[in-house]
């Protein structure tokens, strides 16, 4: 019990720290990385509530896919930090006012008696929720799941057929065409002599082509 408590406080502290760093840190890539940290610790908290499926999905989907995509976007977009912080002082009073209102709202809602907050109980050990979700998905909903997989396949085919443009962009040499080249097709001999001129100087033959 004690280790659980210690673990909870450690996770909670890191979570709050990471979450506050997300909004305060200056560099957007670091902010995204702190968000990843926040997700990991939140997954840890869920794991302690025996919600292991949610925890795994949070890590797999949010950390593994969404945040990686997000990092790509953040890294490839050139953000002008200076312009983002422009007018910070000017917007500060409005921001503080909105923040104050939101805090007041949350306090008033959370202090209502009906919403007596009880500590979330961990799920009973007998029910394995990965198994429960799996049972539902692969028994009762197996037909829709299969159709969804077909939709993904159709999506892949559609995306490829819409974007694959063959090898049009690669530069290549057609040997047959090269061999078939004729001097007459490429070379035009221009007579540069003056029409009435008697002086027949060396004519240009332009063989250097």
């Amino acid at each position: 019990m004690l280790t659980e408590k210690i673990l909870f406080y450690v996770f909670a502290a890191i979570l709050i720290f990471a979450a506050s760093m997300v909004v305060t840190v200056r560099h957007s890539v670091r902010a995204a990385l702190f968000l990843v940290l926040a997700f990991f610790t939140a997954a840890g908290l869920w794991l302690m509530l025996h919600a292991e499926f949610l925890a795994i999905v949070l890590v797999l989907v949010y950390v593994g896919a969404v945040m990686v995509l997000f990092l790509f976007v953040v890294m490839s977009v050139d953000l002008d930090q200076g312009r983002l912080r422009e007018g910070f002082g000017r917007h500060m009073p409005v921001g503080l006012l909105v923040a104050g209102v939101v805090i007041a709202e949350m306090v008033s809602i959370l202090s209502i008696d009906q919403l007596a907050i009880v500590a979330p109980e961990s799920a009973t050990v007998a029910v394995n929720n990965v198994e429960a979700v799996g049972q539902l998905l692969y028994r009762q909903y197996i037909y829709p799941v299969e159709i969804a997989s077909v939709i993904l396949l159709v999506g892949i085919i559609a995306a490829i057929s819409m974007t694959l443009r063959g090898r049009r962009q690669s530069r290549y040499i057609a040997p047959a065409e090269q061999l078939a080249a004729n001097k007459r097709d490429r070379l035009r001999v221009v007579d540069l002599r003056e029409p009435a001129s008697t002086d027949s100087s060396a004519e240009s033959k332009g063989d250097d082509n």
Binding site: I151, V154, G155
Partner: peptide, 19 residues
């Protein structure tokens, strides 16, 4: 037999049609 498979079937058809 359910609105879920109805919708998924519709999406399979629509996605093919868009392409």
């Amino acid at each position: 037999g359910s609105l879920l498979s109805l919708y998924l079937g519709l999406e399979t058809l629509s996605l093919s049609l868009y392409a």
